Amino acid sequence: MMEIRAATIRQKGGPFRIENLILDEPRPDEVLVRIAATGMCHTDMVARDQLYDVPLPIVLGHEGAGVVERVGSNVKKVTAGDHVVLTYMWCGHCRPCLHGDLTYCQNFYALNFGGAREDGSSSARDAHGSLHDHFFGQSSFGTFALTHERNAIKVPREAPLELLGPLGCGIQTGAGAVINALKVNPGASFAAFGGGAVGLSAVMAARVTGATTIIAVDVVPSRLELARELGATHTVNSRETDPVATVRKISGGGVEYALESSGRPQVLRQAIDALGIRGTCGIVGAPALGTEVSFDVNGVMTTGKRILGIIEGDSIPDLFIPALVELYMQGRFPFDKLVKFYPLDRINEAAEDSEKGITIKPIIRVAL
């Protein structure tokens, strides 16, 4: 066992509390990672605020990046000293996993939101007993994280490690939705509804795919300006104009692809209505469990529109995360323009800035 510092959530709505905890040694199939930095994602706030059923108290954090400290006796994928990005967890033995549909693992919710390993055990404890951990198989808001070999993704040492954590979830989700799930093609029209980290990652990915009409829709002028810098050919402030009518006008009758990342039902309806004939709308926003949305059934049916749920960008992390790192290193995917760094002891400030829209993608830098 070893002592670590980590940010815990002990009650609905927080705050994060920096505490000294004890962490177990890695099991045979596990990897101990010394965390360099961890991205803060909307899903951390969803868990903190109990919009999803996540057990408390818990150590959150699911966009970790760091250096492998030790590995279990059966681990072959990484070795001590390797640089890794930590991503979502999947079981590897259910029918979807065996088909290669890792993000639709039958055990996805339990493994990523259940606060424990697949066997129900946890690895972190305080003076009074066990805490919930293994959030997204990692719980990386701390100095060390214990993860399965499966969801530790090796990345090149020459890449800036403390920047890479968000590739494990938010950035991967937006980019993967465009590249892997929607399969936006050269010359296509695409609209991102929502200009946060996921939506802006989608904008960058659309430029990488060769889409020629790339529309960013948001209500924050600074985010729309950044979207232009990152590859959007058009921007729409939905507080100032009807986004559906404007997107349809720009695209000549409706876009071929749209992505909704805000988690707001009314925005999802706008994204669906903004589609052209045979258009596809991807859903990646995460509202509270049980949230419903309405749409015009005939408007969808008679135009052949498709509505597609997407988890983690339909990504196979061992392939997709290194590809995103390479795109970044080539200057073709500048996601560093989304981030701002905060030390671990200012994690509550990072959360507040994120929720206020001051910071698009906070990264919690861990001081060792």
Rank of each mutant, 00 (worst) to 15 (best):
M1E: 14
I4H: 12
R5T: 13
A7G: 08
A7Q: 04
I9Y: 11
G14E: 11
N20D: 15
E25T: 05
E25Y: 03
P26H: 07
R27Q: 14
P28E: 07
V31P: 10
R34A: 13
G39K: 06
C41H: 04
T43W: 03
T43A: 02
D49W: 07
D53N: 11
V54P: 13
V54Y: 12
E63M: 14
G72W: 03
V75P: 13
H83V: 04
M89G: 00
W90E: 11
W90R: 00
C91K: 03
L98G: 11
H99W: 12
D101W: 12
L102D: 10
L102R: 06
L102G: 07
N107P: 05
L111V: 05
G115V: 01
G115H: 10
A116K: 10
D119T: 06
A124V: 15
R125S: 12
A127P: 00
D133N: 15
G137F: 02
Q138K: 04
S140R: 01
E149W: 04
A152H: 03
I153V: 15
V155S: 02
P156N: 06
E158K: 05
E162Y: 07
E162I: 00
L163K: 08
P166T: 07
I171C: 00
P186A: 15
A188W: 03
G194I: 04
A197N: 04
V198M: 02
L200G: 07
V203Y: 05
R207I: 04
G210Y: 03
T212C: 05
R223I: 08
R223L: 12
L226G: 09
L230A: 06
A232K: 05
A232S: 11
H234S: 02
N237L: 04
N237C: 06
T241S: 11
P243Y: 03
T246W: 01
T246C: 02
R248S: 12
K249S: 14
E256P: 00
A258E: 08
L259A: 01
S262P: 10
G263A: 08
R264N: 15
P265Q: 10
Q270H: 08
A274I: 06
A274C: 14
L275S: 12
L275V: 09
I277N: 13
R278T: 11
R278M: 14
T280F: 12
I283K: 07
P287T: 08
A288D: 13
D296I: 03
D296R: 06
V297T: 14
V297D: 12
G299T: 08
V300A: 15
T303A: 15
T303P: 07
I307L: 15
L308Y: 11
I310G: 02
I316C: 14
D318K: 13
D318M: 06
L319K: 15
M329K: 15
R332W: 08
F333T: 07
D336V: 04
K340R: 15
D345N: 14
D345M: 00
A350V: 01
A351N: 02
A351M: 05
A351E: 02
T359D: 05
K361I: 00
K361A: 01
P362D: 12
P362K: 01
